[in-house]
Simulated scan of single mutants.
Amino acid sequence: MISIDRVDHLVLTVADVDRAVEFYEQVLGMTPVTFPGDRRGVSFGAQTIKLHSASELVAPTATHPVPGSANLCFITDNALSEVQEHLRAHEVRIEEGPVSRIGSNGPITSLYLRDPDGNLIEVARYDEAE
């Protein structure tokens, strides 16, 4: 039996790496990073999202890597009213929320939006943090 400790990084296939970096930096407050070979991504906490262009995939890759096929949930310490205000200021449409959901560690309240590639992004706050 093996034991998995945590997620280190995720890879998103995107249509335009520059546009994706700008969104994740400006809208979600992540930090742009550059890897060897001029590969790019964003980081937050101890995690990284590597961004691979659909036109220049890096092997090995998923079986069907296409932009807009991910569904990701990010946890914030900010009040969701602040998140809503920030999203409006960046002209990002909230698709749903605030709504109650269950996260890995209990009840959360979530907002749903989409990144430039159409990936579903959930920004949530654990309810006991309110």
Rank of each mutant, 00 (worst) to 15 (best):
D8G: 03
D8R: 02
D8M: 02
H9K: 10
L12P: 11
T13V: 06
D16L: 00
V17M: 07
D18L: 01
R19L: 09
A20W: 04
V21G: 08
F23T: 06
F23K: 03
Q26W: 02
M30I: 03
V33P: 06
F35A: 06
F35E: 08
P36K: 04
G37I: 02
D38Q: 12
D38K: 10
R39I: 00
R40H: 10
F44C: 14
G45T: 03
A46K: 09
T48V: 12
T48S: 14
K50Y: 09
A54R: 08
S55M: 03
L57T: 03
V58P: 02
V58H: 09
V58A: 08
A59S: 15
P60I: 05
P60Y: 08
P60C: 09
A62R: 15
H64F: 11
P65F: 09
G68M: 03
A70E: 10
A70R: 07
A70F: 07
N71S: 12
N71E: 13
C73I: 01
D77Y: 09
D77W: 06
N78M: 15
S81K: 14
V83Q: 01
V83W: 00
Q84Y: 08
H86M: 02
H86C: 01
H86N: 08
L87I: 00
L87A: 00
L87W: 00
R88D: 11
R88W: 01
A89K: 11
H90E: 11
V92Y: 07
V92G: 10
R93E: 15
I94E: 10
E95K: 09
E95R: 12
E96H: 10
E96P: 00
V99K: 15
R101D: 01
I102D: 14
S104M: 02
S104I: 00
G106C: 03
G106N: 05
P107V: 00
P107N: 01
P107D: 06
L111E: 03
Y112D: 06
L113A: 15
R114M: 02
D117K: 05
N119K: 06
L120S: 06
I121V: 15
E122S: 15
E122Y: 14
V123R: 05
A124M: 04
